[in-house]
Simulated scan of single mutants.
Amino acid sequence: MPQPIKVSSNTFLLKSDQNQPLTTSWFDPEFWQSQKALTGTGTGRGEVWFINSEFGRFVIRRYRRGGLIAKFNKRGFLFTGQQNTRPWLELSLLEHMRNLNLPVPKPIGGLYTLKKGFYKAELLTETIDHAEDLFDLIKSDKKDQIAWQEVGKVIKHFHTSGIYHSDLNCHNIMIDKQGKVWVIDFDKCEQRTPDPSWMQSNIDRLKRSLDKESGKFSNFYVSEKQWQAFLEGYHG
């Protein structure tokens, strides 16, 4: 479990990597920019910043709300206890998955700040070096090098370990230069008893994400043969 550190009356650090000298500044992109360590930004379920520092290579993710409510409240979440906060839940799940030797990013820490019964939060994880997401690989000239059977095997490993990914899509699966498959972004994900129904719905979600991107980008295409290779890997 992450180690909670009270920084002020309304600010709390959650520390997963006990070897890092974690401070609130580590969750501030402007701090890293002043250190000339900010190397890029991205988007996903939250705002994302990439850090290359003397302490290591990290990703900051700022939790944001989705859906209609985001028009009125972009970052505030109702506070119902520290162990129900988004960073606590995600860090705890990442620590658990690392103990199971699942290929996920190393958790570093989290930060949340309280105000009038709501909190805002950030997460810090270690970068997966020399890796690209499945979306970018499919669009690139490396698409024929994707080991779809291996991707299927890895997703099955998560499922048989009881890990439900609430947003399994082609942006949250990464492959590094050694061909190792990783899974990222575990906000709102959870441990479940393995069951064919949710496991199949997870696979269906991934397939829908591939079909959706295929309809949006002319250079994004997954053949039936490639998808069958994924299924062969998944079903063993």
Rank of each mutant, 00 (worst) to 15 (best):
Y119P: 06
S161H: 08
I69L: 14
F220N: 06
D167L: 00
P105E: 07
L231S: 08
K207C: 09
K116V: 02
Q20R: 09
S223L: 10
G110P: 01
F79N: 00
D176W: 01
C189Y: 00
W26N: 12
G162A: 00
D195E: 08
Q149D: 14
N10G: 08
T160C: 04
F79G: 00
V181E: 02
G236H: 15
Q82E: 15
A70W: 12
N172W: 04
N219I: 03
S9Y: 06
G152H: 07
F186Y: 08
I5R: 12
K216H: 15
L206S: 02
G233Y: 04
I155T: 01
Q82L: 14
Q3T: 11
T193I: 14
A131M: 06
Q20F: 11
E95G: 04
G56P: 10
H130P: 02
H171S: 07
W148T: 04
I175L: 08
Q3E: 15
K207S: 04
E150P: 02
L124N: 02
T160G: 00
T127P: 01
T11V: 15
Q145M: 08
L94V: 04
H171A: 08
P105K: 06
D28M: 11
F12H: 03
S53K: 12
E232Y: 06
K116Q: 13
K36Q: 15
M174G: 01
V104P: 00
P107W: 03
I5G: 06
V59T: 13
S201Y: 09
R208F: 10
Q33C: 11
G66S: 14
K143P: 12
L94N: 00
Q226A: 15
I138Q: 05
L93F: 05
K153G: 01
H159R: 07
L78M: 08
F217L: 12
S53W: 10
I128H: 03
D28C: 14
E224L: 09
I184K: 03
L102E: 10
P2R: 00
G179R: 04
L102H: 11
S209M: 06
A131K: 05
A70G: 12
E30W: 12
E232K: 11
S223C: 09
K15H: 05
I138V: 15
Q191H: 10
S53M: 13
T24A: 14
R65N: 11
I175P: 09
W182C: 03
A147W: 05
D187M: 05
S218T: 12
M1R: 02
K106V: 14
D195F: 01
F27C: 13
N202H: 06
K153A: 06
T85N: 05
F77D: 03
D187G: 04
G76R: 08
